[in-house]
């Protein structure tokens, strides 16, 4: 029977192989670079994991992540307030930065003359390139005092809201100030991504909206923003990732408090940030504290990994109708 079956077609290998010496070298270098990044990430994770293991084993992961207190004497380390502080400051920064960043992007893309557009784009990108230590020093020497005045005004006018209450009588070194510094830091990132997304909005849609009697505002709200939403979200998450990982700038302007949570009192001088904790404690750390700090690093690493993965996923799905 089998001889009556038609012969199955044999698929041929179609893989592109480097043919010339130049191609072989080029492929080799590229592949080595690509794989080494993967290897590096894995090695870093292994190193962090090994170093952090004693802390996780001794404290328990839940106690380490959600508990309070950081004591060398008792060898008890918990990053709860730091982790929450990171999230609080990053959220504050994003809330302040997003409207500003979107407005900048709209102005550059839809209002500015070509010349102003080039200049503004250049300056925004330069702003993104300012090292965070510079922004930290600016925050410490200049903005802290301005921000403290803003905080005082907020407290005087809106102090009846728990979020703006203040019992310490000082408005320096608060999550609010750290949040504004973070906002300054991430506005260029978000506005740069948003501008790119805006530039990809099909001009025909904007024309259609205007031809239907829409004005600038309604066209922005009902046409431009909906088609850009996923891309902008990706940009915001990139900014959030940067905000969570920010170390030096926050260290300069925030009073780190380990033994209690500052849930939402953004005008009180006290809060937390994981990366700043590591920076602040590492220099004079005991052996067991080093393990705890590296454990904090693992948690921060995982957190930013998750946020960046979400960002990558959302950006990859931006404007799905363009991929049909």
């Amino acid at each position: 029977m089998s001889e009556t079956l038609p012969k199955a077609p044999v698929r041929r290998a179609l893989r592109v192989k480097p043919a010339t010496t130049e191609d072989k070298i080029f492929f080799g270098v590229s592949a080595a670079a690509g794989y080494s990044s993967l290897v590096l990430i894995v090695l870093i994770l292994i190193f962090l994991g090994l170093q952090a293991w004693p802390t996780f084993a001794q404290q328990g992961i839940a106690e380490f992540v959600f508990g309070t207190g950081w004591s060398n004497a008792e060898e008890q380390y918990s990053i709860g307030p730091m982790l929450w502080g990171s999230l609080l400051i990053a959220t504050l920064g994003v809330i302040l930065a997003v409207p500003m960043a979107i407005s900048i992007a709209y102005f550059i893309e839809f209002m500015a003359t070509p010349r102003l557009k080039r200049t503004a784009t250049l300056f925004i990108d330069l702003l993104a390139a300012i090292p965070s230590v510079i922004l930290g020093l600016w925050g410490l020497e200049v903005f802290s005092y301005v921000g403290a005045d803003w905080g005082r005004m907020l407290n005087e006018t809106l102090g009846f809201l728990p979020i703006f209450s203040n019992v310490a009588e000082s408005f320096l070194r608060t999550p609010f100030i750290a949040g504004v510094v973070i906002a300054v830091m991430i506005v260029p990132i978000i506005s740069s991504v948003t501008r790119e997304i805006f530039s990809q909005v099909d001009d025909d849609l904007i024309k259609a909206s205007i031809a239907l009697g829409g004005n600038r505002e309604s066209t922005f709200r009902k046409v431009i923003l909906p088609v850009s939403a996923s891309g902008i979200t990706g940009g915001v998450l990139l900014g959030l990732g940067r905000a969570l990982g920010e170390t030096v700038a926050i260290f300069f302007v925030l009073n780190l408090v380990f033994d209690s949570y500052n849930w939402f009192n953004i005008l009180e001088p006290g809060g937390g940030a994981i990366a700043s904790l590591i920076l602040g404690q590492f220099g004079e750390a005991t052996a067991s504290e080093v393990s705890a700090l590296l454990a904090a690093g693992v948690i921060l690493f995982l957190l930013t990994l998750v946020i960046n993965s979400i960002a990558a996923f959302i950006v990859s799905r931006a404007q799905p109708w363009n991929n049909r």
């Binding site: 025909d204 046409v223 088609v227 109708w321």
Partner: peptide, 10 residues
């Protein structure tokens, strides 16, 4: 318009 341009999110 020349090219159909319905609003893609709607």
């Amino acid at each position: 318009f020349q090219k159909p341009n319905p609003f893609p999110t709607m």
